[in-house]
Design a protein around this nucleic acid. Structure first.
Lengths: 223, 223
DNA sequence: ACATCATTCAATAAATTCATTGAATGATGG
DNA sequence: CCATCATTCAATGAATTTATTGAATGATGT
């Protein structure tokens, strides 16, 4: 009898996109995909869930159009559909940040207190890069670095940082970055390096935002 | 034993915000609230659901911090927490629009075909208002108009438009607007008025976006 | 105090989402 | 063609979400 109203049909579509990002694991997977494409196994590994489970979540997001899949031999590589998804995630973060005291509490306890929270903005870093007065330090794992990184960045994964301090010039100021605004790696790196007397600050967000802003990215290509 | 990781805790917060917008009815309620504050009964009425049901959805969104409630006598008025929520909704729309063929189909069938889709942008309308060469027509219900509308706008609800054509100057160009980019009212109004020989176009989106852009809004106050 | 009205709460049943398990598919390399 | 490996599928049960119903709460006006 009564057909569904066009307005309701639209809202249903919008809701299904929202549902696709309404699960903590899917958000974590998306943070990974924001760095570059990834196979199902790698994603399952990084997020510490079973392969079957990761696969299901990935398909959920594929149905919603948030990610796309590409088959290469035995592997299926997923990637973020486009930068619009990054914007949606950023809007989600901002809303959560502004509205939930819980988010602030977590952020304060685990992130900001480790740091003087004087992060470097993208535009400031662009300036400093032009004048060549900073070392840019990428503290993500090597494979993520290989898929794309800030121009001229040095890659020392956070887990190996302590053993590779010799590679850093103790005079030049360092700017560290990682996956995004809520990635712990760069916070940890800053804390460690400051304790060793280095002059170091964090980039306010990570590689995906840098790329999303249309700034240049270097890639080493797959090894 | 193992505490929840801070990263997971954050993603859980983000996901709960996403969940709060992941239901078609809640999105419809939010579209209403974008116009201004509303009592539970009015919202239930507009969205054609039971009062208890509307109340539950409202509380869900209140817990997520998307809306706030204010008691006035017997009534409880809900309102959107702030403009950040509008941004989240806009990002959701854009993502859905870009990624789902279904959205495009619905939009094309029910909206664009009725219209030459040459909508007027906000900046263009600001220009035209300055030079005083257009009549701005608000086709939303009277109560929504009373809560806030574009400066100098004329209010003729879409349902009464046919009976009030005499109030419109047949010479001047008309720009019609309503609740937002997916509100049918202005599409219907444009179709009706064009059929009657008026020169009329739609504003690309509605009052909430106008207000969100920091442009001036007139209010009649409650009657 | 009492009746009324808007809203919320509590309980229930139906529907949906989720993680897990083990089997099926599809490509690769001997 | 067979064995292997990455991924997907299908089936299950547990957990969560949702709409409905009727009762409880809280404010108002008589």
């Amino acid at each position: 009898m009564s057909r569904i109203s066009p307005k309701r049909a639209l809202f249903e579509q919008f809701a299904s996109v929202a549902k696709a990002v309404a699960h903590p694991l899917r958000l974590e997977i998306l943070e990974q995909l924001a760095q570059g494409e990834r196979s199902v196994e790698v994603l399952a590994d990084r997020t510490r869930v079973s392969v079957a489970n990761a696969s299901q979540h990935l398909q959920h997001m594929r149905r919603a159009g948030l990610v796309t899949a590409r088959r290469a031999g035995k592997f299926v590589f997923y990637r973020m559909a486009d930068d619009g998804v990054l914007e949606l995630l950023a809007a989600l973060r901002r809303t959560a940040e502004a509205r939930s005291a819980e988010v602030e509490r977590v952020v304060r306890n685990y992130f900001h207190d480790r740091d003087a929270l004087d992060a470097v903005s993208r535009v400031e870093l662009v300036e400093r890069l032009r004048s060549g007065t900073v070392t840019v330090l990428d503290v993500r794992p090597r494979d993520e670095f290989a898929l794309g990184h800030l121009p001229g960045a040095l890659n020392i994964p956070a887990s190996e940082l302590e053993r590779h301090l010799a590679e850093l010039d103790p005079i030049r100021e360092i700017v560290a970055y990682c996956r995004g605004p809520y990635c712990v790696l760069s916070y940890e790196a800053v804390a460690l390096l400051r304790a060793r007397g280095f002059k170091v600050r964090r980039l306010e967000d990570g590689l995906p935002e840098w790329r999303g802003a249309g700034l240049p990215v270097e890639a080493s290509g797959p090894p």
